[in-house]
């Protein structure tokens, strides 16, 4: 029985043209850690993140996430089991524009057992509707439950996406550049919210970012990718701005 949330070694991923995205990457993530995955554009952060939760297949290496071995031979059932226990937030919130905020949060239950009626709040279980409303309260948007998703600002929409991830009560929260498409103030709010939720609920958080301030302020550990491999992997307290600048310069 492994105590790590993620245990990965020798991870290799290539583009369809054979070019290597990253190779030989190894990392262990412990419960409750807030990990910032940093690197310049094209460094492979998002690809690595997707490989860690089985959204993209690996070309080599072994990865066990939440006890599920999701290497090249992972079965759809294993991936399904894993995805039921994680929450994912992308750079774009991915809300269904024409649906209400509450319905979008209830969607977070879709992958769960018996979740077939979670495609609209009006037919979802009462318990799940309550969970969704509570998740909205956690992100400070319970008063927007009945608003349409396309009426929200970018920052509010991203908060709803976080609520959609939280409603699953995940053990692991994955965020792929959640602040990249927001203005600086909204971006900071969203990152602070992630950080606070992770601290309060003990959820393990892995977040990609290319914002140095976000990495330094809202994480316990920083993993830097450069030229397809781990450039450094340090507790945030040991990382200086100069270290970070080296990651982003050739």
């Amino acid at each position: 029985m492994t105590s790590e949330i993620i245990r990965a070694c020798g991870l290799t991923k290539r583009y369809s043209d054979g070019k290597t995205v990253f190779s030989g990457i190894g990392l262990d993530v412990l419960p409750g850690q807030r990990v910032a995955l940093i690197g310049s554009n094209g460094a492979g952060k998002s690809t690595l993140l997707k490989c860690l939760i089985g959204l993209l297949p690996l070309d080599g290496g072994e990865v066990t996430t939440l006890g599920e071995n999701i290497g090249a031979s992972a079965s759809p059932r294993q991936l399904q089991r894993l995805r039921r226990r994680i929450g994912v937030v992308f750079q774009h919130h991915g809300l269904v524009a024409r649906q209400s905020v509450l319905t979008n949060v209830v969607h977070g239950k879709l992958g769960l057992a018996g979740g077939w009626h979670a495609w609209h709040q009006s037919i979802a279980r009462q318990e799940w509707r309550r969970d969704a409303q509570a998740a909205l309260a956690q992100v400070g948007l319970d008063h927007k439950a009945e608003a349409r998703a396309d009426e929200l600002s970018g920052g509010q929409a991203q908060r709803v996406a976080i609520a959609r991830a939280l409603v699953r009560k995940p053990q692991l929260l994955i965020a792929d550049e959640p602040a990249a498409s927001l203005d600086p103030a909204s971006g900071r709010d969203v990152m602070a919210l992630f950080s606070q939720l992770s601290r309060d609920s003990g959820i393990t958080l892995i977040c990609t970012t290319h914002d140095m301030d976000h990495a330094l302020e809202y994480s316990d550990r920083i993993i830097a990718l450069k030229s397809g491999s781990v450039f450094f992997d340090q507790p945030t307290g040991n990382v200086t701005r100069r270290h970070l600048q080296e990651v982003f310069h050739a």
């Binding site: 039921r84 992308f90 774009h92 077939w116 996406a161």
Partner: peptide, 16 residues
Amino acid sequence: KPQEALFAIGASRFQV
């Protein structure tokens, strides 16, 4: 984008 977000959390094709 919403389709990708729902697929990522294990929703089936019919649910998406």
